[in-house]
């Protein structure tokens, strides 16, 4: 009984940490670090190395935001979150922002009261089959058994796709992604379905990746992006325009290599405004004038982040596809910095 009271005392002590009052940006500045929610581990998107340092495609967004505010990409603490507790963690204020492979959907945006600040990866659900099956299109999968992770949007998309095309299938519901892959390798199902980026990274780990093909059909839209709570538009702007700055930097050819040189001033007013040598965009956000420089300096522009974490030279080997700039036929399109 006494020990129980001890825990109560500890609780009281930990409660005393104080209440959020001002805007999120002020809170973050006062804390001195950004608290960012990430996945517990998704290949290429959020990983921890042997020293416990987080890195990855989603993590880079957190680091860029931290750098935009503090000029230091390490002024960020990461909270690993599962797909089940990510939303409560964000809405309760446990994290300041979430960058965790989260699909932007109507109900998450409206009903759960979040603001998606943009899209950092356009994904879509695909299928993987063994080459030996002799299938070249998902429409040939009539009567196939399909391994699928339960409780995800992929399960619903799968049902929609097969119903729309009037073909039958047999789902093999499996709890976790790893287990599903093991089942697929063991031949428990003919096809495995999840987001195309997940298929690519899973295939890269197989003993014989060439024995498996990813079918061309993409059966759903999965725009993944960072998100923040409703109710603090200034903070939303900070995260949104940091992401846009990374995309804009790629469009105008600003890289971590030539950043210092370009920051001295160029003939292109758009670059000058982005890097803060012209205009007062940083001030409008409540940040320093060179906020975007710092954000780009920490991990490079969008293309550099992409290539380093999930690009074609990594074991995951994703091509840009939809995630190319609009000038290259992709969907990335940053509103002007003006």
């Amino acid at each position: 009984m006494k020990r129980f009271a001890f825990i109560g005392a500890l609780t009281a002590a930990t409660f005393a940490a104080g209440f959020a009052s001002a805007g999120t940006l002020d809170d973050v500045k006062a804390k001195g670090f950004l608290q960012c929610g990430v996945a517990t581990g998704v290949v290429g998107f959020a990983t921890a190395d042997a020293n416990g340092r987080w890195d990855g495609f989603d993590v880079s967004v957190c680091r860029a935001v931290a750098a935009a505010i503090f000029g230091d990409g390490d002024a960020v603490k990461f909270t690993p979150l599962s797909s089940k507790n990510r939303f409560t963690a964000l809405s309760s204020g446990e994290v300041d922002m979430l960058a965790r492979n989260t699909t932007w959907t109507f109900s998450r945006d409206v009903e759960l009261k979040f603001n998606f600040v943009g899209v950092n990866y356009y994904d879509g659900q695909g299928f993987m089959v063994p080459k030996a099956l002799g299938v070249t299109s998902a429409k040939d999968l009539d009567g196939a058994t399909v391994c699928i992770q339960t409780g995800t949007t992929t399960e619903l998309n799968l049902a929609d796709f097969f119903r729309k095309n009037g073909i039958s299938y047999e789902p093999v519901p499996i709890e976790t992604n790893n287990e599903a892959i093991q089942q697929y390798i063991a031949g428990a199902c003919d096809a495995y379905t999840t987001d195309a980026s997940g298929l690519a990274s899973a295939r890269a780990t197989f003993e014989n990746p060439k024995d498996h093909i990813i079918l061309p059909e993409i059966v759903s839209k999965e725009p993944l992006g960072p998100l923040v709570r409703h109710g603090d538009d200034q903070w939303m702007d900070v995260v949104r325009w940091t992401l846009n700055a990374l995309i804009e930097a790629e469009e105008y050819g600003v890289t971590s290599a030539n950043l210092a040189e370009l920051a001295k001033g160029t003939d292109n007013p758009e670059i000058n405004r982005l890097l803060g040598t012209e205009g007062n965009l940083g001030e409008m956000l409540g940040l320093s004038a060179d906020w975007a420089q710092k954000a780009i300096a920490v991990g490079g522009n969008y293309a550099e982040i992409f290539e380093r974490n999930i690009g074609e030279n990594t074991p995951i080997g994703l091509s840009r596809g939809l995630n190319a700039q609009w000038t290259d036929g992709g969907l990335l399109y940053s509103p002007p910095f003006r």
């Binding site: 996945a39 517990t40 581990g41 998704v42 290949v43 290429g44 998107f45 959020a46 990983t47 921890a48 190395d49 990855g56 690993p80 790893n178 892959i181 990274s201 899973a202 890269a204 780990t205 197989f206 990594t314 074991p315 995951i316």
Partner: peptide, 12 residues
């Protein structure tokens, strides 16, 4: 172990 597996070196 899930987090370790998310490293491209040890994925799988």
């Amino acid at each position: 172990s899930n987090t370790i597996r998310s490293d491209t070196d040890w994925n799988g």
